[in-house]
Design a protein around this nucleic acid. Structure first.
Ligand code: MN
Ligand code: MN
Ligand code: ZN
Ligand code: ZN
Lengths: 165, 165
DNA sequence: GGTCTTGTTGCAACATTGTAGCATTAGGCG
DNA sequence: CGCCTAATGCTACAATGTTGCAACAAGACC
């Protein structure tokens, strides 16, 4: 998990360093031997600062609003790469599209809440998905995904204000 | 949840009855005021007897093998209807397609295991997803979905025999 | 059993989300 | 500055659902 990638830069640093001090998105990308490109950089910065997981589509819109030109496919590939490198995480909200969030602490996993009215997903930092359980023989768990479904605070305000999507 | 649908048959029965005695798929469909059609009937029978959740595609293949002619869209609609009626449940495996399973006990929820090698999903009847937790203010949980990811018993046998999908 | 009503089907067209192939561009090192 | 090749930006394609609508058939009523 901290094994060096081929063309590591001179000032190599382990993935764990990222947890302790905070490096810039540019540095974190370069440290993994990847080229710092427009899309990767903008996406990683967005994910690092964002507070909740975003879909490919939402990220694309945000990039467009920020005036960052980008291609749909390139965005998919940038996200895949960030996930491979452990810089982002892909989570499976209740809808059909993946959502992505920046990884701050690689060791820390948390559950998510999916609002079935507005579709918003929020992180439940305090809630760690229970991993250890008696499984059928021969099964081996690698990770657990816990998604709570219901109604978020905003959607619960005035009676059914927000419309479903 | 047990509120009667418009055209209820004379011998109306509540959804809970289904739990106690077991009615035929034909009866359970009719009891909800739905028309008993080829596809609905075959699908519900399949789901009731199946041991693990199936995707739309797998169900379609199974129907074909069993010689039950059906249309792709009709199958989607039959599944939607069964879910609406509480006769089936839709779960969000780690892949892009929904999976469906028959509902035996409406009150009983359980977690699932998703094998990341072969894609198989198995029910963890013993494991109930923890619902009660301290949520941000104003949030209201309706249900919890817990999916464990890892390697199933079959895939764990010979070193990496089954290939990923 | 025959008729009527309307819930369901079956088809074609479309939408969303993601991948594959491949020529072209541009990141970063010397 | 120039080179090498990782990444991009297209265009197609694949997988999974959804929508609209005319035709059909389930089942209630006689
Ligand atoms: Mn999160
Ligand atoms: Mn199950
Ligand atoms: Zn909401
Ligand atoms: Zn497996």
């Amino acid at each position: 998990m901290a094994s060096p990638q081929p063309p590591y830069p001179a000032s190599a640093r382990s993935a764990d360093d990222d947890v302790l001090r905070h490096f810039s998105a540019r540095e974190r990308i370069a440290a993994r031997g990847g080229r710092v490109t427009r899309t990767r950089l903008a996406v990683l910065e967005m994910l690092q600062h964002g507070s909740h997981p975003l879909s490919h589509d939402e990220i694309g819109d945000a990039l467009a609003s920020a005036g960052v030109a980008h291609d749909r496919v390139t965005l998919y590939r940038a996200l895949d790469w960030l996930v491979e490198q452990g810089l982002a995480r892909r989570i499976a909200g209740g809808e059909r599209a993946w959502r992505f969030e920046g990884v701050r602490d690689a060791a820390h996993r948390h559950a998510h809440f999916h609002c079935d009215r507005c579709g918003q997903v929020v992180c439940l930092e305090g809630l760690e998905p229970a991993p250890a359980t008696a499984l059928p023989n021969g099964f081996q768990v690698e990770r657990a995904e816990l998604v709570l479904h219901g109604q978020c605070a905003t959607c619960g305000h005035g009676d059914e204000e927000a419309r479903p999507r």
